[in-house]
Each structure stands twice: as structure tokens, then as C-alpha cells.
């Protein structure tokens, strides 16, 4: 399979650099637009959900244009349904390509999940079995996205609540093989590692040992909620509605100690806090990044 095309040279969107630095960033949310523009906080980058900017015009685009002119951006898709068996929605792919061209993000990512079937969009990241068949489909879909965008995308490891009995790959091996075959990078969501390992009865340290860390170009951190399954086993829900948990911070420090500094995003999508709380989470990530043995290692520099 051909390697992904290099990104086209950045056109001048504004003074902000295109490359996402190996610093902490936060998810950009509408209630924080004004605070960000008024106070210009020292944040490494912002990330947006691509689908929230797929309207024709209006305040979302106006604010994002302003903020993009001051900060690097990463574009995070939540609706492409890369893990589906059926073909990708070409209209949706065109919309994603248009956003990539318009905002020149330093990173573009999507999920190892599916969200559409039979013409219905479920607005959730749904799980897939790890088999030869799904491996082929995921790789074919990523190749299609690489062609449409003319750049490499990152694939995010999922948080899952159940497993498929027909799976023949371990999740880590599946992701490593997808990255090897498709040439995609990997977005390591450390909270998803913790949630999935708890829910699936896996050891998170072993998971990370087997994970394709050399392909990791970005990290996500988020909060989760504790629950239990029908037989009383612990079940963590990937809620993105609270601070990052202590155990996830520990795992993150372990990853950074192994990997060096990598662009790290604080995701907070529900029960959004005031801006200072979000910024404090980003600062905490930056202290971990600052303690890393090999900051800004070229191997982990942002793509683009």
C-alpha cells in the first residue's frame, strides 16, 4: 500500500503555526470562545470535533477562524464510521476534506469504531470485532481518507464495554497492524486504555507494552464514570464529563516517560466546566510533559 501523501505546504491562515506542538491542548467549546479570544490563554493547541463545523457559515466558523489564526489546531472526526463494513459516506468525506483545507489543522484524527449503518447515524462510537475482515475494511477506509485529504490521519483506540466472541486479534495487535498496513498514525487515548482494560479485564501496562507506541502522534486524556455490569463486575463509562482520574494521570506519566513529549489533549465534552478548570487540567498535563526525558523528540514531532 502506498504511503500517505505529504500534506501540501501550509498556506498562510494567519500567524499561528500549523504544526501541533508537543504541549497540552484543550477541546474548543462554544461557551469558551469569547474567553479565549479575550484572554489569549497560553495553550499549546485547540482541538475541534469536525462535525460541529460542517455548517455553511455562522458564529462557529467565525470563532474558529479567529482562534485558528492564533493557535495550532487539531481536527477530530467523530462521524466517519471507519469501522463499518459498508462504504464511507463520500459526502461526509468531502466535508471533512473541505475543513482540512480551510483550517489547515496540524493533526487530523478519527476513531476505530463505527457509527453508521443502513443509512442511520447513531451518534456514538460503536465497537467492532477484530478479525481479518474488519482489518481489511478499516485499512481500505483509511486509505480512502488518506487519498481524500492528501495527508496522514491518526486512528484513536476505543473505549469499549463488551467484546465480540469472533475476534481473532488482540486490540493492540489489531491497531498495530492497521497502522502498519495503512500508514496511519495513532492517537493514544490513555483514558480509553484505562476504561477498556477495566471493562475487558486486561492489564493496562501490558496493553501499553503491546501498543504501537512508535506510531503515536497525539494523546487524549478525559474523565470517566464508574459503574458495574449485570454480574457486578466493574464497568467504566467513557463520559468526558469530569476531571481526568488519578489512575489515568499515572498511566499518562508512564507513557510520557517511555515516549517523550507528545501533543496531549484534555477532552471535556459534557458538564463543561468554567475555562480556568479546563486550563488547570492542561497545565497539569504540561507539568508531566515538562518532566519527560526527551521533549520534542523529532520522532514524535507533529505530522504536518
Amino acid at each position: 500500500m502506498a504511503p500517505p501523501l505529504s500534506p501540501s505546504p501550509a498556506r498562510a491562515v494567519g500567524p499561528a503555526a500549523r504544526a501541533v506542538p508537543a504541549r497540552a491542548g484543550v477541546g474548543l467549546k462554544a461557551p469558551h470562545y469569547r474567553t479565549i479570544l479575550q484572554t489569549r490563554p497560553d495553550i499549546g493547541f485547540f482541538e475541534v470535533h469536525a462535525e460541529n463545523y460542517m455548517g455553511a457559515g455562522g458564529p462557529p466558523h467565525r470563532y474558529l477562524t479567529e482562534i485558528r489564526s492564533r493557535y495550532p489546531l487539531s481536527l477530530h472526526g467523530v462521524g466517519l464510521s471507519i469501522g463499518a463494513d459498508g462504504p464511507l459516506d463520500r459526502t461526509h468525506l468531502r466535508r471533512l476534506a473541505a475543513l482540512n483545507e480551510r483550517y489547515e489543522p496540524g493533526l487530523v484524527s478519527e476513531h476505530l469504531a463505527w457509527s453508521s449503518h443502513g443509512g442511520i447515524f447513531f451518534n456514538d462510537l460503536l465497537p467492532l470485532p477484530y478479525t481479518q475482515r474488519t482489518l481489511q475494511r478499516v485499512c481500505a477506509h483509511i486509505a480512502q481518507v488518506h487519498d481524500a485529504l492528501g495527508r496522514q490521519i491518526l486512528l484513536e483506540n476505543p473505549s469499549t464495554y463488551l467484546a465480540f466472541e469472533e475476534s481473532t486479534y488482540e486490540e493492540t495487535d489489531f491497531i498495530a497492524e492497521v497502522a502498519r498496513r495503512s500508514g496511519c498514525g495513532v492517537l493514544l487515548d490513555v483514558n480509553n486504555v484505562y476504561v477498556a482494560c477495566t471493562n475487558q479485564g486486561w492489564d493496562p501496562l501490558r496493553y501499553l507494552q503491546r501498543f504501537p507506541l512508535a506510531q503515536v502522534r497525539q494523546i487524549h486524556l478525559a474523565g470517566h464514570a464508574p459503574d458495574q455490569d449485570g454480574r457486578g463486575a466493574p464497568l467504566l463509562i467513557d463520559t468526558h464529563d469530569r476531571p481526568v482520574s488519578a489512575l489515568v494521570w499515572d498511566l499518562y506519566a508512564h507513557v510520557i516517560a517511555t515516549l517523550g513529549a507528545v501533543p496531549t489533549l484534555i477532552e471535556w465534552d459534557q458538564h463543561l466546566p468554567e475555562w480556568p478548570t479546563l486550563q488547570a487540567e492542561a497545565r497539569r498535563a504540561e507539568t508531566v510533559l515538562a518532566a519527560s526525558p526527551c521533549q520534542e523528540a523529532p520522532r514524535h514531532a507533529a505530522v504536518g
Binding site: Y161, L162, A163, F164, E165, E166, N199, Q200, G201, Q228, D229, G230, R231, A233, L235
Partner: peptide, 13 residues
Amino acid sequence: GCIAPDGLPDATR
């Protein structure tokens, strides 16, 4: 075929 770590289906999940 959607299972918990004990190998059994679980509707809660």
C-alpha cells in the same frame, strides 16, 4: 456473541 470478560453475554454492557 457480545461478551463480558467472563465470556458470557451481559445485557447491561
